[in-house]
């Protein structure tokens, strides 16, 4: 398998919170143009890993390379400029701004002119099914609407690598299907994606490769079919009492 250098290379990433080792030595590659999933039971360290990659949490050890550059220890805004944009599992809208203004903040990353940025924001918002809500305050959105807004804002920033942290949690099955199609469309436009998700059906449908995290450590890596059959993975989930989720998927 002679592959080009990966777009994202994570090596030995680790972080403690007091006595808790939230992430212990994460190794992970993301090839350009692919969708990679990071899964694992609650508290496995997925969000913490994303936060370290995006510069929000300082790693205790390890390195992150992006597009050939070592970005370990960079501040979040610099990482965003370099091309990595994350969404937040607990949605973080700019509550006092309208939906369109929210998306425009993302668009401003690549477009300086206010009018042009607004035009992009409205177009993108409409594409993502927020057309009717563009002028409403973001605080008025439902859970599904907020998840959409997270995605729209991140996309507006024109990322090369998109980190999606559970953008499907709390959505109805129809909404999940829509979002799966949407994420695939984003990938087809050339954006590389690293995502975490508890909705297994979505992960299986989307991911080219899956990494499984349990209690901060990587326990399995491979294509979806192989991961689904891996007894260690099933055990990790069952151990955490999340078997139901697998069955759902």
């Amino acid at each position: 398998m002679a592959e080009a250098a990966p777009l994202l290379e994570v090596r030995g990433l680790a972080r403690r919170f007091g006595g808790l080792r939230a992430v212990r030595g994460l190794d992970l590659d993301v090839q350009a143009g692919t969708i990679v999933a990071l899964i694992g039971p609650n508290g496995a360290g997925k969000t913490t890993s994303f936060a370290m990659i995006a510069g929000f949490v300082r790693p205790d050890a390890g390195s992150v390379r992006f597009a050939g550059r070592d970005i370990t220890g960079w501040v979040p805004e610099r990482i965003a400029h370099a091309g990595i944009v994350r969404t937040f599992q607990i949605t973080q809208p700019f509550a006092g701004l309208s939906v369109a203004e929210n998306i425009r903040i993302g668009a401003f990353l690549r477009t300086r002119a206010p009018a042009a940025a607004m035009e992009q924001a409205r177009a993108l918002g409409s594409e993502l099914g927020l057309a009717a809500l563009l002028d409403r305050p973001a605080a008025a959105l439902t859970v599904a609407g907020r998840k959409r807004l997270e995605l729209a804002r991140a996309l507006a920033a024109g990322p090369r690598l998109l980190l999606l942290d559970e953008v499907m949690a709390g959505l109805t099955p129809t909404e999940v299907n829509d979002t799966v199609a949407l994420v695939r469309g984003v990938r087809d436009r050339g954006v590389t994606i690293l995502l975490t998700e508890h909705v297994m059906q979505a992960v299986m449908a989307l991911a080219d490769r899956i990494h499984v995290l349990a209690e901060g450590a990587l326990i399995a890596t491979g294509p979806p079919r192989q991961i689904a059959a891996d007894p260690r993975v099933v055990e990790a989930y069952l151990g955490a009492g999340a078997a139901a989720r697998l069955a759902d998927g």
Binding site: V75, A80, V85, Q92, P93, I105, F108, A113, P114, R153
Partner: peptide
């Protein structure tokens, strides 16, 4: 009306979200 002002409002409303979108 401008970009700087929009950045300022974004930081006021939610600093982490603003930084994730490249706002220093």
């Amino acid at each position: 009306v401008g970009r700087f002002g929009a950045h300022l409002l974004a930081v006021r409303e939610n600093e982490d979200a603003a930084r994730a979108l490249g706002v220093p």
